[in-house]
Design a binder for these strands. Structure first.
Length: 295
DNA sequence: TCCTATGTTGTATG
DNA sequence: ACATACAACATAGG
């Protein structure tokens, strides 16, 4: 599920516990999501600390704790965050074990790899497919990997020239693959890339370096628009975008373009299933053909 | 049984 | 060193 706005939505789910103290930490310590994480440090360090802050940047999240501890979360393909209020019966039993010194048991659900218990509930990280990633860092300021994430695509720091530079550096790659590169387009994922290219009327297989200036302007404009609008529409409630978006038609075979009414096409481009509207997004082959005249 | 899946990364090749 | 392409990761559901 998680691209830019969905990640922001999950961040907000955990943010309800900002200010609360972590009472216990339970983990599936051998889960792949901890491959870049010192699990022992996390489990020993976090209890007693207070959750102070939460941020999302692209598909990454960072939760800050009192005393200089940082929990980084990437949701991979199937990760999610949830805050679970204990029901009345569960509260009694959970409270009784709170003072116990024995290590916290592993979470009951096999896909819940990290659970932070607070006085009012449980912060749950779930990820069936295990492509997600948990990081734990200590220090006064945010960790280096976090600071290296480029600025939001909706901000003034991301300019047309930045887009142009990157397109030229990846000149031979299809636009679809280029838009998925997080080092330049943090938060853009498979459905967002298709949505952007569809709105910009650019075929996903076009080589990045082949775009003229008007096309670059279009890409820039709709890239920012999709980021802004998805944040506005999706982040608060996890709502689907309106039916006027490609999003609502791209998932299965037989979908129709909401602009042209003609059949959408689905094909693998840049290693990912890609959906586009042939009547709206002219193929690279056709574009090449138009320059046949020679003086 | 086979195919697909809203993501990243390691590795091979040019 | 850089750019590009793709298999691999692990699980669930159609």
């Amino acid at each position: 599920m998680p691209e830019l706005a969905e990640v922001e939505h999950f961040r907000r789910r955990w943010a309800v516990a900002v200010g609360e103290r972590i009472r216990t930490v339970s983990v599936h310590r051998n889960a792949r999501v901890f491959r870049a994480c010192d699990v022992a440090a996390l489990v020993e360090d976090l209890p007693g600390r207070r959750l102070l802050s939460s941020e999302a940047a692209g598909k990454q999240m960072l939760f800050g704790f009192s005393g200089g501890a940082w929990l980084g979360i990437h949701l991979g393909m199937t990760g999610s965050l949830e805050f679970v209020n204990p029901d009345a019966t569960a509260t009694a039993t959970a409270t009784d074990t709170a003072t116990a010194t024995a290590p916290a048991p592993a979470p009951a659900d096999r896909h819940d790899h990290l659970v932070l218990e607070t006085p009012s509930g449980r912060l749950v990280f779930r990820d069936p497919r295990l492509f997600g990633r948990i990081r734990f860092d200590r220090g006064r300021g945010a960790p280096a990997w976090w600071l290296a994430i480029p600025p939001p695509l909706t901000s003034d720091e991301f300019m047309l020239a930045d887009l142009g530079t990157f397109l030229d550096r990846r000149a031979k790659s299809p636009l679809k693959a280029v838009l998925l590169m997080q080092e330049r387009f943090p938060g853009v994922g498979n459905w967002m890339a298709d949505e952007i290219l569809w709105r910009a009327e650019l075929h996903p297989a076009r080589q990045a370096g082949s775009l003229d200036l008007p096309e670059r302007r279009r890409l820039y404009r709709w890239l920012r628009w999709v980021c802004r609008e998805s944040m506005r529409v999706v982040a608060p409630s996890f709502a689907d975008p309106p039916a006027s978006w490609l999003f609502r038609h791209r998932w299965s075979d037989g979908g129709l373009c909401p602009r042209t009414g003609h059949a959408l096409v689905r094909e693998t481009i840049g290693g990912r299933t890609t959906c586009w509207s042939p009547g709206r997004q002219p193929s690279p082959r056709k574009l090449v053909k138009k320059s046949t005249s020679r003086g």
